[in-house]
Amino acid sequence: MSIYNKINAGFSLGADAPITSGIEDVVYIFNENDITLTYNPTNPLLVTGLTAVSAAKVYKFEGTNNSFNAISKLSKTQVGPRYTEEIDFNIAGLSTDVKAQLMAMGYGRVRAVVINNYKTGDSAIELFGAVNGLILTEAERNAADEGIEGGYKLKLTNPDKLKEPYPPRAVSIAPESGTATYASTLAALEDLVV
């Protein structure tokens, strides 16, 4: 059964697991070609494995006070639906190391993983930029901005004319023996962090 052009299930929201907005104040970012993605063979919306190429790493950016946000927007095109994916976050730092990372995210393509505040279901952890990657499209610094102490406001999004063919992919990774859980997925991600 194809998921491309037929609905195959319904859903309802209940009191047992009410939807919760926002993402945690952490984003995991890695270079597009540094981590190989493994997909569920029957569901392309589900990433079941992240494997480092050579000694590649995942980089963890942490924030506070709901300073991170993730957005996915549907666009109808002549060839079907496409999705624009965006991740907004702040960096409180001005070092040359920070600036070098900003430049790398602007020229190279990265992928990013976020953790939703809504933990029910297999989409508690999501991957952005799975097909076309993300680039840094905004890096704004206002030295007088007391909200982020003069740091950078950043936006990662798809490169021009390269929207994603799917919404953000769910990441659900099983341990060596057993079924995938939120904890096992987070542990697999943390194992790749520098």
Score class of each variant (00 low, 15 high):
1 M>R: 11
2 S>M: 04
2 S>H: 04
3 I>L: 11
4 Y>Q: 09
8 N>W: 11
10 G>I: 12
11 F>P: 05
13 L>S: 11
13 L>F: 14
13 L>Q: 09
14 G>D: 03
15 A>K: 08
16 D>I: 08
16 D>G: 07
17 A>V: 12
19 I>W: 10
19 I>F: 13
20 T>Q: 00
20 T>K: 00
20 T>E: 02
22 G>C: 01
23 I>M: 00
27 V>N: 00
30 F>W: 02
31 N>H: 12
31 N>P: 11
32 E>W: 07
34 D>S: 11
38 T>V: 10
39 Y>L: 13
41 P>Q: 13
44 P>M: 07
45 L>K: 09
48 T>M: 01
49 G>M: 05
49 G>K: 01
50 L>D: 08
50 L>V: 02
51 T>P: 07
53 V>H: 07
53 V>S: 15
54 S>T: 13
56 A>I: 03
59 Y>W: 08
60 K>C: 10
62 E>W: 01
62 E>R: 02
64 T>Y: 10
64 T>H: 13
65 N>Q: 04
70 A>K: 00
80 G>T: 04
81 P>H: 11
82 R>K: 14
83 Y>S: 08
83 Y>R: 03
84 T>P: 08
89 F>N: 00
89 F>E: 00
90 N>Q: 15
92 A>D: 14
92 A>M: 12
93 G>H: 02
94 L>Q: 12
94 L>F: 08
95 S>L: 06
96 T>V: 04
98 V>I: 14
98 V>W: 05
100 A>T: 09
101 Q>L: 08
102 L>G: 03
103 M>G: 08
106 G>V: 02
107 Y>R: 10
108 G>D: 15
108 G>L: 13
109 R>K: 14
111 R>P: 05
115 I>R: 03
115 I>M: 10
116 N>H: 03
118 Y>C: 02
120 T>M: 13
123 S>V: 04
124 A>K: 00
126 E>K: 14
127 L>G: 05
128 F>N: 00
129 G>N: 08
129 G>M: 01
129 G>A: 01
132 N>I: 04
134 L>H: 07
134 L>S: 02
134 L>V: 01
134 L>W: 00
136 L>K: 03
136 L>S: 01
137 T>V: 11
140 E>H: 10
140 E>Q: 14
142 N>D: 15
143 A>S: 15
143 A>L: 15
144 A>L: 10
145 D>C: 13
146 E>V: 11
147 G>V: 14
148 I>T: 02
151 G>M: 08
151 G>I: 07
155 K>L: 12
158 N>W: 06
158 N>K: 05
160 D>A: 14
160 D>Y: 11
160 D>T: 10
166 Y>A: 10
168 P>T: 03
170 A>M: 06
172 S>K: 12
172 S>W: 10
174 A>D: 14
174 A>C: 12
174 A>K: 14
175 P>E: 06
178 G>V: 07
180 A>K: 01
181 T>P: 06
183 A>N: 12
185 T>M: 07
186 L>C: 10
188 A>F: 11
192 L>Q: 01
